[in-house]
Design a binder for these strands. Structure first.
Lengths: 110, 110
DNA sequence: TTTGTTTATCGTAATATTGCAATATACAAA
DNA sequence: TTTGTATATTGCAATATTACGATAAACAAA
C-alpha cells in the first residue's frame, strides 16, 4: 500500500532508513557536498550550482533542514545555509555502525 | 515530475543516492542486519523474522540482490541468501568517503 | 504422477516522491 | 510607498515505492 510499516521495526532500523532517505536523491547529496566545499554558508546560488528550479531546491533544503543536517540563517532577503556539524557527527556514528557490521565473515555459502 | 534528473549529477553523486535508496526502507535494513547476524546463509525465515508478507520480502531481496549487496543461492526448494562481502566493502568505501567530508569545519555562520 | 513446500512474478491499490509554475512572503533600496 | 530580489509555499501532474493477494514456477517426497 506504499506505507512503510515502521512500527514493526526498531528505532535504530527506522533511524538508519530515515537518514538514508535523505541521501537517496542526488540533488540532496550535491547540496550537502557543496555546503561542505564552500565550508562557510551559502545562499541561493545552489539554484545556479545545480540545474533545478528554485522551488525544487527549496524543497530539498527543507527536507535536509527538517532532518537537522543543515541549518538556515536569514540574512536580509537571502537565507544562509550551512552544515549542522553536531548533527552530522551523530548521524555519522549511526551510519558507520551500520556499515561496519561486516567484520567477522565466517561462513559464505553463496 | 517525480523523475530524478540523474543526468545533471556526477556518477558518484548518483551512486551515493542509489546505495542510500537501498537503505532507505527499514525492511531492507533489517534484512541486511539479519544476514550479518546469522552470518551464514538464510532462506525463507526472513518472512517469519520480519512481519511482512512473502511477496514483499521477496521484492526487497530482489532490490538488494540487483544492487549486488546480497547473493542468492538455490538449494533445493529454498533459496539461500547471504551478504556479498566484496560488494559491501566497496560500497562502504564510497559511503564512508561521503560521510567523512566534515573534517575541517572552519566557518559557521548559522 | 501427485502433493506439498518454497520462492518469484504479476497485477493492482495506496501512498510517497519529485518537479515546477504560480504565487506568497519578507525585506532592502530607491 | 513602490520596486526589486530572494526564498518559501501552494497546487498539481508525473512517476516511484510499498504492500499483498493470486498465481506461477521449481523441486523434493510420497
Amino acid at each position: 500500500m506504499g506505507v512503510s510499516k515502521t512500527e514493526m521495526f526498531t528505532d535504530l532500523q527506522n533511524e538508519i532508513s530515515i537518514i538514508s532517505k535523505a541521501f537517496s536523491h542526488p540533488a540532496r547529496v550535491t547540496i550537502l557536498q557543496y555546503l561542505f566545499k564552500i565550508d562557510s554558508c551559502v545562499c541561493g546560488d545552489l539554484v545556479n550550482e545545480i540545474g533545478l528550479a528554485q522551488p525544487t531546491i527549496s524543497q530539498h533544503l527543507k527536507e535536509l533542514k527538517h532532518l537537522g543536517l543543515i541549518k538556515g540563517n536569514v540574512e536580509g532577503t537571502s537565507v544562509c545555509y550551512c552544515i549542522n556539524h553536531e548533527k552530522w557527527a551523530t548521524m555519522k556514528t549511526v551510519m558507520s555502525e551500520f556499515l561496519d557490521q561486516d567484520i567477522p565473515k565466517k561462513n559464505d555459502c553463496c
